[in-house]
Write a protein that binds this DNA or RNA. Structure first.
Length: 216
DNA sequence: ACATTAATTGTGT
DNA sequence: ACACAATTAATGT
């Protein structure tokens, strides 16, 4: 599928210089993937760097037993810091990337990523900026895992979700939440019921609603 | 509309 | 963490 310069300009018009936009249309590979598509699995090799145009991608790290821990989400105009490092050092992936919505993205071949770093100042800025963003997310994740209690982590996860969809109702199962927090489903069920009693959430099958004063 | 089945959630140990 | 009960949603007839 080919890229249209005009559409790119809409997204990146004031971020990248014209010559770089041109280059992206030349070598970039446009894709649309459905919800639930595995963009990357641990052990896979990275052949290109994704730039997310729209949609949502969950990046998680999984250990040997298949336990997963949420690292961060990739949304509009984000790129993946992991794949940036991996491709520069030609390493295998250590993470899993799965789309949570229908997602539109551009794949940039690895060679270009390096070339552009020296050629285009705005590209370099972009790369550094995504590093910084991801790094902040990761620090947040570490903080959560190391210092917060599980109930705080759960509530926090729910708040993150509400930001992403700009609404207070999500359709998730307890088990999915448990996976993101690397716990068991029962624990989540019990915590959720506590939160319900405290009036923070409303529960029903496949659905959780955040109630009360949760500002974005 | 009803019965059957599958998936999600609740609870005790 | 496991086993099982209870509940709810999805599907077929």
């Amino acid at each position: 599928m080919r890229l249209e310069l005009d559409k790119l300009r809409l997204h990146f018009g004031n971020l990248f210089e014209a010559a770089l936009l041109q280059e992206i249309t030349q070598v970039g590979n446009y894709m649309e993937v459905p919800e639930g598509y595995a963009l990357m699995r641990p052990g896979g090799y990275i052949r290109s760097v994704p730039i997310i145009l729209s949609g949502l991608v969950k990046i998680s790290r999984s250990d040997a037993d298949g336990k997963e821990a949420l690292l961060y989400y990739l949304g509009g105009l984000d790129s993946c810091a992991m794949s940036l490092t991996c491709c520069l050092s030609k390493q295998q992936s250590e993470i899993t990337a799965i789309t949570e919505e229908k997602t539109k993205l551009i794949l940039i071949p690895v060679e270009k990523v390096g070339d552009w770093m020296s050629q285009f100042p705005t590209w370099k800025q972009f790369v550094f900026a995504t590093y910084q963003k991801r790094f902040e997310d990761l620090l947040g994740a570490i903080d959560q895992i190391a210092f917060r209690k599980l109930d705080e982590r759960l509530l926090n996860l729910l708040k993150i979700k509400s930001k992403q969809c700009n609404c207070t109702i999500f359709y998730v199962t307890h088990e999915e939440l448990a996976n993101e927090l690397a716990t068991s489903r029962e624990v989540i069920s019990r915590l959720l019921k506590q939160l319900e009693k405290m009036g923070e959430v409303k529960l029903s099958r496949n659905k959780i609603e955040l109630v009360g004063k949760h500002k974005s």
